[in-house]
Design a protein around this nucleic acid. Sequence first.
DNA 1: CCGCTTTCTGGAACAAATCAAGTCTTGACT
DNA 2: AGTCAAGACTTGATTTGTTCCAGAAAGCGG
Lengths: 142, 142
Amino acid sequence: MSGADVEEQLRESGLRVTRQRVAVLTVLHDHPHTDTDTVIRQVREVAGDVSHQAVYDALRALTEAGLVRRIQPTGSVARYEVRVGDNHHHVVCRSCAAIADVDCAVGEAPCLTPSDSHGYLIDQAEVTYWGLCPECAAAAAS
Amino acid sequence: MSGADVEEQLRESGLRVTRQRVAVLTVLHDHPHTDTDTVIRQVREVAGDVSHQAVYDALRALTEAGLVRRIQPTGSVARYEVRVGDNHHHVVCRSCAAIADVDCAVGEAPCLTPSDSHGYLIDQAEVTYWGLCPECAAAAAS
DNA sequence: CCGCTTTCTGGAACAAATCAAGTCTTGACT
DNA sequence: AGTCAAGACTTGATTTGTTCCAGAAAGCGG
């Protein structure tokens, strides 16, 4: 995705186009599942000095606008990704916390419906697969 | 579950039986999906003075022993529950963060298997349904 | 009952995230 | 082009959730 596309995306969502936000979006496009701290460092590489607060603000604004999605598996810090709308899921390594995408077989949210919703109005089913990544599985086997 | 049962559970897991641990387990039995801070307050109600550190230690020890399960939906603090082994899932209210249990139709982990596991060795599929609880749905409608 | 080991206590430290006040920038409207 | 208000950014402090540490206390096998 080019810088112009990113700018267009921002405008369409009614957000102002700023150097910081473009940088955040670009970084997330290039590095999915990035935690906040890494986003801050990457943003500074491509956009020079940016306060951590600006990154936090940008991430929240982008999340509210639906341009990025926030995920937070148990035991991890918040991570962000730009793949939204396709209702895909994640597989997380118990050992090293690596995350990989898993396409949803159904595709549309909610792809699953619970047996008993307890009166809740459910709009999304988020699936997290837990296991070991290839590297950690190999290390554990030896 | 009685106090004696709780003690037995601890012993079977090779953990020492302490007033603090019994209190933590009992509190979790009575109040599922409780966050750490609430656990601390409840434990102090039933067991008198207990340091917050003891509660953190107990929660970690119990989690490692498999007696309690830690869940942490995006945007929430860590919560704990005693239902383990039946691979049930959760429905979370986007508005008030209330949590309810949802029985798994399959029952055994992993109840789902991804289309492409990327080489990961998957042992569990955790499903979180997102939506609005009955109270918040009613409030939103009015 | 004794002593070893684990656990608990109390305090401090730490990291992640949020809040607050003031300054600067964007983009719409003369 | 110039002005202006809403919104974004910066700096720095604060809150929140969690962990680390050293010494005291308690559980449990002998």
